[in-house]
């Protein structure tokens, strides 16, 4: 359901942030310790692209925990079962990494996020943990059934990426990594409609497909379906209230079915 964004408050700038204590941990455990012991509220800082937007929207951290030295957050790798992506990986590093070959279509979709300049600064963790509907990694990773490893003082928990929207970041504040399961040989295709804005990801695995639809203002909607489901039938399953002021449900059902037909054709075409 669409909820109108809060009215913009008084304009703030970066200059409104007073000087605050600054910590630079070397490990996940040190980062959690810093968050627990620093003056509250302490903020995690990495790429900065979303952080500064939040400052302008009113966030006022009393301390900064700068993550750039936490090497565990930068690891990317895969085995037979999963692709693992560290939270500090930038978009630029991610889509160029050979491990992404494990999921055909993921690198191409990831490469379409943001711009050349921002892709080298913005991180996977920032994109997901900003929990903004206009950011796209949540859509791609929800389609792929990815899980998020969140660290807190009492250890690390696994959460489906689609549940990060309502995750309790007070107990487990630090995204360590995201894991994409490789069972069923997943592959991905991504479509965007810019006017009106909505996006659609389709993940195919042996035995099941997952469709995800999102708009600039709506959280991703995920729909699991059997292989071969007709496109119009799949998009007709959109919830009745899935619409925002920029795009109607009827448009997403109709245009989404056309997208889906193209996506299926692309993904089923011989390599």
């Amino acid at each position: 359901m669409f909820t109108a964004p809060a009215p913009r408050g008084l304009a703030r700038s970066q200059a409104d942030l007073p000087p605050v204590p600054l910590y630079r941990p070397d490990s996940v455990a040190e980062a959690i310790h810093a968050l627990d012991t620093a003056p509250a509220p302490a903020a995690l800082y990495a790429g900065g692209t979303d952080f500064f937007a939040r400052l302008r929207e009113g966030e006022a951290p009393a301390a900064l925990v700068w993550l750039d030295r936490v090497q565990d957050l930068r690891e990317v790798g895969r085995d037979d079962h999963a692709l693992r992506l560290g939270a500090l990986v930038t978009h630029h590093e991610a889509f160029r990494h050979p491990a992404l070959d494990a999921v055909p279509g993921l690198a191409a979709a990831w490469r379409r996020i943001a711009t050349v300049r921002i892709r080298r600064q913005a991180t996977l963790g920032g994109n997901l943990m900003a929990r903004r509907t206009r950011y796209e990694l949540s859509i791609l990773l929800t389609a792929l059934g990815a899980s998020a490893q969140m660290a807190g003082a009492d250890g690390t928990i696994d959460l489906p990426v689609e549940d990060l929207w309502q995750a309790d970041t007070a107990t487990h504040p630090l995204l360590v990594s995201v894991t994409v399961p490789l069972e069923g040989c997943p592959r991905l295709d991504y479509e965007r409609s810019m006017r009106p804005t909505f996006t659609q990801a389709l993940a195919m695995r042996d035995g099941g497909w997952r469709l995800v639809v999102a708009t600039e203002y709506l959280r991703p909607w995920a729909h699991d379906m059997a292989p071969g489901t007709p496109p119009a039938e799949a998009t007709a399953a959109l919830p009745a209230d899935f619409a925002d002021p920029a795009v109607s449900r009827a448009h997403m059902v109709r245009a989404g079915a056309a997208f889906l037909k193209r996506q299926i054709e692309r993904m089923e075409a011989p390599a």
Binding site: P18, P19, V20, P21, L22, Y23, R24, P25, D26, E30, H33, A34, W66, R69
Partner: peptide, 11 residues
């Protein structure tokens, strides 16, 4: 862990 600044000042 390195504390780069306790009082907000840094060189």
């Amino acid at each position: 862990m390195t504390t780069l600044s306790e009082n907000g000042k840094i060189d």
